[in-house]
Amino acid sequence: MRRFNARGSQPIFTVLTTGMLLVSMLIVLFPFLYVVTTSFAPREEIVSRGFFVFPHRWTINAYGYLMSNRQFMTSFLNAVHITVLGTIVNMSFTSLMAYGLSKRWLKGRKALNLMVLFTMLFGGGIIPTYLVVKSLHLIDSYWSLYLTGAIAPFHLIVMRSFFQNIPLELEEAARMDGCGEWRLFGRIVLPLSLPAVATFTLFYAVQNWNAYFNAVLYLNDSDKWPLQVFLRQMMNEANDSMENVSGAFEYSPSVKMAAIVIAAVPLIAVYPFLQKYFNKGMLMGSVKG
């Protein structure tokens, strides 16, 4: 970190950036704390709204309740399953295709790029997609989720542009050494693109983790539904018939908030591990400018 200090100390600049970051952090933190602390608040305090940020007494009842709730745990594990396998599918499809399309010399590249871009704008909608999934006999299988969302065109395009930024000399040099495309991709390009790989793994993971509507659409077996379906059901706000709302079991606010926290924690917890890939200049060893 000395490196940055060596960039000449300019107090105004440092104070300004630090200050602005601090303010934005607080603005984010305050409402977020509301969610977290509500999940730890005892029922009486929520009922009387006797606190906003910190309850007087803390309890982990809400978490205990969720952990002992079989449906919650099943759907949580389903979500982990879907996220891990889905993200593997996403990253293999996307990185291979993005790498291929990053070759400026490739014949048909422009047509393929246009083909990808076009799908960002035009989609056939849910009915025809459902028919395809059905005719492939993927209904009620997690493969319906993995395959229908195998590539997000947006991620593909951005990833391609990351690959394109890798200096061509490197590729040339590797080829001189007799490296084939697969080895070039696996041994040189991917390691050099770790920030991009980390980013899009995270993006896809989050997307899979939050996937909701497709699960409801393609999975008829409620035991297979992921966490987000459970969560939505839990948050579901009253329809107009009041009786149904009150009649069906209702979760207390702290349980709802605890569920949100639990649902957010796995991916928030992953982040610090990925952060090292976002350090400026982490690639300097390999790229000689």
Binding site: R70, F230, Q233, N236, S241, Y251
Partner: peptide
């Protein structure tokens, strides 16, 4: 047997 209906919150059906 497949049955589909509207949920108004609360638990899901569990085969167990």
């Amino acid at each position: 047997i497949d049955i589909l209906t509207i949920s108004y919150g609360g638990a899901n059906w569990s085969n167990d």
